[in-house]
Nucleic acid binder design. Structure first.
Lengths: 237, 237
DNA sequence: GCGTGATTCAAACGCTCGTTTGAAACCATC
DNA sequence: GATGGTTTCAAACGAGCGTTTGAATCACGC
């Protein structure tokens, strides 16, 4: 592992050839997106990045640490952006509580900006992230929990103010559903091919997707309590 | 591979020791739930099932076919149950369109029944299923698409009748979000540990979970069109 | 109780995996 | 142009993988 990272200039710092570490991160982002973490081997990854096989272990330690680095590179700035945006909205609102839609915007807009930005990996990263949500590997679960802790806590508070009639527990359930719809949407896998026939998958749709997600989630969050009778489980009529 | 499956009785057909095929399926269901498909090796799987290593290839062909068998065993009956329930509701309603809540019930109740039934694998299977939704492996994606095709088409028609003001495209988006929240909820991973602190994970909560999911999703599906202004993407105020 | 096909078993096959190694190449500094 | 730390490289390591093999075992019809 490198003892330190001297800020010396590489022979070509331009777009043609970034440094080894970035090339590895870019290739990893793309391949983890396409095949998932387990199914991506370091051999195909280093080949795609045009670096030596040993470079991953040298620069990142292990394959798991590489995965965490792939996530951190984009996730930390995005979550910071979310918090900043939320605080800006709160300042603008003064003493009045924010609407659900506004809070959701603070969650979605940074994700949407990221997905538009080719230079920051665009959709690829968000797909990796969406997949990571469903991964059972403990090192992923623990890492995500830690990375999201601050943002989640801020947004939970904001939603609680916007929806004071919901108990803490009820709000937790609903945020759970929100995260589900969001991660599935970001992952863009659509196991059931619901979208494929009706809606082609391109950049414009990715934006419309998040714009349609916000009203859907807002309506769910604001749903009145107990407006549905209990599900009838008896098999008889 | 076995040429045929003679219905001869095994030395012990009782609960103590089912036949080899079932023991493999049960162990696979449990281990795929815990570690995922890729991360589960046939050696730990066959050890957990107390069968010979070669038994999986003998009875199922390959590891992938085993995974499909794990899914089919529970999924086919559950989806048939969903369709039957929907048709019963439709008969009861006569000419009037069904409510969103009713249609959602037809989707959720069979899943809930399965999750309560220890003899049918209970929650374990639903977690495997939820994970499968997010898996990028083509053989899983294609398999799920095929398995769900009929059910999805029926329910899409039903929702379209319940929500005639939604365009086909808009409905597709919203069903996409519904599937997202549902799969994340079934998978029960909760990458962000939202639930852990507030709500212990036990059987009663699994049932409450689906009961809370229905009103949330119904509200989202019924959300009015275009009630939200476009997300403001400009970084400036 | 023998023959037959289904099933189990221990062992091995060939391959790929993540990681390590130690030497070579590189590059700023003296 | 020698020094010393950083990075790259080809090669190998040991382990584990999914799968195959061929013989042993079993259950049953004859």
């Amino acid at each position: 592992m490198p003892e330190q990272r001297p800020a010396r200039r590489t022979p070509a710092m331009d777009a043609l050839s970034q440094d080894t570490k970035s090339r590895i991160l870019d290739a990893a982002e793309s391949l983890f997106m396409e095949h998932g973490f387990e199914a991506t081997s370091l051999r195909q990854l280093t080949a795609a990045a045009s670096v030596n096989l040993a470079a991953v272990n040298y620069h990142f330690g292990t394959k798991e640490e590489l995965f965490q680095a792939v996530l951190t590179r984009r996730l930390d700035p995005m979550n910071q952006e979310r918090i900043d945006l939320l605080e800006r909205y709160e300042r603008q609102a003064g003493t009045r509580p924010l609407s659900c839609e506004k809070i959701l915007s603070a969650m979605l807009i940074p994700a949407l900006r990221l997905s538009r930005d080719e230079r920051r990996g665009g959709k690829d990263f968000l797909r990796v992230l969406g997949r990571a949500y469903a991964d059972p590997a403990p090192f992923i679960r623990n890492f995500l929990s830690a990375q999201y802790a601050e943002m989640i806590s801020r947004f939970k508070d904001a939603f609680q103010k916007a929806l004071p009639h919901l108990t803490k527990q009820e709000l937790t359930w609903r945020l759970h559903f929100v995260m589900g719809a969001l991660s599935y949407t970001l992952a863009g896998t659509d196991a059931l091919k619901l979208m494929a026939q009706v809606i082609p998958h391109d950049r414009d749709n990715d934006e419309m997707l998040l714009e349609r997600l916000a009203p859907f989630l807002a309506a769910g969050l604001k749903a009145p309590l107990g407006d549905t009778k209990k599900l009838e489980l008896a098999s008889g009529d």
